[in-house]
Design a binder for these strands. Sequence first.
DNA 1: CTTATGTAGTTGACAAAAGCAACTAAGTTC
DNA 2: GAACTTAGTTGCTTTTGTCAACTACATAAG
Lengths: 144, 144
Amino acid sequence: MNSQDIHHIREFDRFYTRIFRLTDKYHLQTTLTLLEARLLLEIAENGYNTANQLVQVLRVDKGYLSRILKRLEERGLLAQTPAELDKRSKILSLTDAGNEQLAIINQRSDDQVRSLFTNLTSSETKQVISAMQFIEEHVTKIKE
Amino acid sequence: MNSQDIHHIREFDRFYTRIFRLTDKYHLQTTLTLLEARLLLEIAENGYNTANQLVQVLRVDKGYLSRILKRLEERGLLAQTPAELDKRSKILSLTDAGNEQLAIINQRSDDQVRSLFTNLTSSETKQVISAMQFIEEHVTKIKE
DNA sequence: CTTATGTAGTTGACAAAAGCAACTAAGTTC
DNA sequence: GAACTTAGTTGCTTTTGTCAACTACATAAG
């Protein structure tokens, strides 16, 4: 792998982070931070339903997470019910209001994605997606 | 653009951010934060050599930036010399130590990129890079 | 020239985000 | 059942980022 290749890849990296605006303070004009939005998503859609699982998958401090979850609960978006099996842990789930918030976020994320592709023909869009899938399949995960 | 397409794209987004580890606190095991590393790079390699230019291109608060630049100067990585043409502004440049730091960061970034591609044949690598370039050329920038 | 207005960067005060360590309560091992 | 581990909480601190006021210089208009 030559230095020109590496240059291209790092260039893409900068392009990508800029375009997808990963640093937006509030996620898509909701009152949720990026992390809060991500938590709702992981809980509701990816089945991570304990604080501990979220700590693993998102690599956040457990103390910090604990407070964020408490805040989400206070805001009525999240329910924490003691686990029957292991009484140390709590099972996390979204309330109806939480699911509504998530739906809004998803809607806006979808809109954002769509707007990135507005000028593309349907065939170009398909090619971009193929390119993404190709990258996803081939780029190797770094070891932890 | 159908919902399946959007799903694929958002999936790629999550994959990408996870793999490239954009949230690492210290950039590649140096004592520089991601922003500090980025500043050195923009100053030395992209020719943005005033605080004002950096504010524009990286969209950070000018007060915050001012403090970071001061810190980099105190650490001996950065020199700020008054501009002759406009005495309000200072011309930023890396010291030798700053260039060394940047070289280390670049080296490690390169290594990281390389390690993501270790298992790929040279032809697969070329295809991934082509895919990246295709995405870069086609995905439209969101308006500010 | 001089007044008004704009711009580059600094500073102080503050708020939000994140990290660290000590702690409680429950589970596990032997 | 004593020693150890684990899930989550809480207090304390640091880091990161925001906002507004301020200084010094620049520029345009009368």
